[in-house]
Design a protein around this nucleic acid. Structure first.
Lengths: 215, 215
DNA sequence: TGCGAACCGTACCGTACGGTACTGACGGAG
DNA sequence: CTCCGTCAGTACCGTACGGTACGGTTCGCA
């Protein structure tokens, strides 16, 4: 067990060989296509041209595989930090609209929806470990980007709020409303994506009405 | 098949005998306690003291049983319509806060959470029939109450909006934000319920800032 | 060339589920 | 009393899954 060399370069420093990355990729594809029901160890092994025994050696058990899938996906969609230098009212609005649009796009992505469905289906069981992971690696991550943007807006005298978390909550609610839940329940995302741009702008307008400093 | 008498009075005119109501009650309890994994036909039969054969005779198959559970629960939590006679600014605000608090309470209810988890887990499969049912019987229902309230507010000259659906979406988003998803992912609802009242008031204040007519 | 580790493919095992079939008990109708 | 429908309880069947074990193959390495 000690001194094991990774057969090729590890991917993204996650401690994963690229072989294991391929496995997780195929597992995600299966999950997106057929839901949790289609995510069987035999199916993953077949799709990734590996043996079940290797799956258990690499990931321990099925739960370990699910956790690895979430970590893997989270590491892939690293949010690009916006360099928020020298904000004025118009550039702040543009940044907020871009954030809102990105948020809607991420939430409507089929991998995101599939992983959220998976974690939610698992949440009733004890632990809800997957839910915590998704929360930590997803919301926390994108929340930090929004928080930084809001803070920059306040520093520039363009926004007024006491509680940053509350302001972020309002922005999130105005942007997303119940669309995320509706997509999780099966409403066709492609139908909704067309209205995302307009929706993002409206939501940001409302947010600025609430938290923007008049001037 | 014809002329079958229901052995006792049907419950709520749903075409269900009270025996079947007991079965659905037990099924919901199992679902809340143990999640979808615990919702097996054998388990339901044992909990309700009936035979599996009767389950299949009454509900057809497992999907029919799940649908019946949603219908049954939806018929139980009929939303009380508020008689919105003679609104002024203060009573409108009270009504909105009451609505917001009720909304949060409903969404945080364990039966609601369990059914939403069930429908979401099922949504990846074809059809997403349960998702549609939950959408129709849940959101549509409570949305009508909110829509009527908003419309009354506009008629009374207290609110200003063009698109009622958009205004409702903003209210919903401000009230709920991402709390529903977080609870679905397993965050403990009892921890959150304490802040519901304050949260409802804050959200309504923001909503009135956006859509309330000044004066 | 020979050794050993990793690994694929498959077979295998125990279990649990959805759904069906059978038996026996109850209870009402004639 | 007898017939008949309903239902509980249980046994049963086919299937599918998670997890393990084994034979055969490739490949790095000495």
């Amino acid at each position: 067990m000690q001194g094991v060399l990774e057969s090729r370069g590890a991917s993204a420093g996650s401690g994963l060989t690229e072989r294991q990355g391929v496995v997780l990729e195929q597992a995600l594809r299966l999950l997106v296509d057929g839901g949790e029901k289609a995510l069987t160890t035999a199916g993953i092994a077949r799709a990734a041209n590996c043996s079940k025994e290797s799956l258990y050696k690499w990931f321990g058990d099925r739960d370990g595989l699910l956790s690895a899938m979430i970590s893997y996906q989270a590491s892939k969609v690293r949010t690009l930090d916006v360099s928020a230098g020298a904000l004025d009212a118009e550039s702040l609005r543009r940044h907020l609209v871009a954030f809102a649009r990105d948020l809607l796009d991420v939430l409507a992505g089929d991998v995101s929806l599939a992983l959220n469905r998976l974690a939610i289906g698992q949440a009733s069981r004890e632990g809800s470990k997957l839910g915590h992971m998704l929360q930590e690696r997803g919301r926390r991550q994108i929340g930090r980007r929004a928080g930084a943007l809001l803070e920059a807006g306040r520093k520039a005298g363009l926004l007024a709020f006491d509680d940053g978390e509350e302001a972020y909550g309002a922005l999130y609610g105005l942007v997303v409303s119940d669309w995320h839940l509706r997509m999780l329940l099966g409403e066709e995302p492609s139908e909704m994506k067309k209205g995302f741009s307009r929706r993002a702008e409206r939501a940001v307008d409302a947010f600025l009405t609430l938290y923007g400093k008049k001037g």
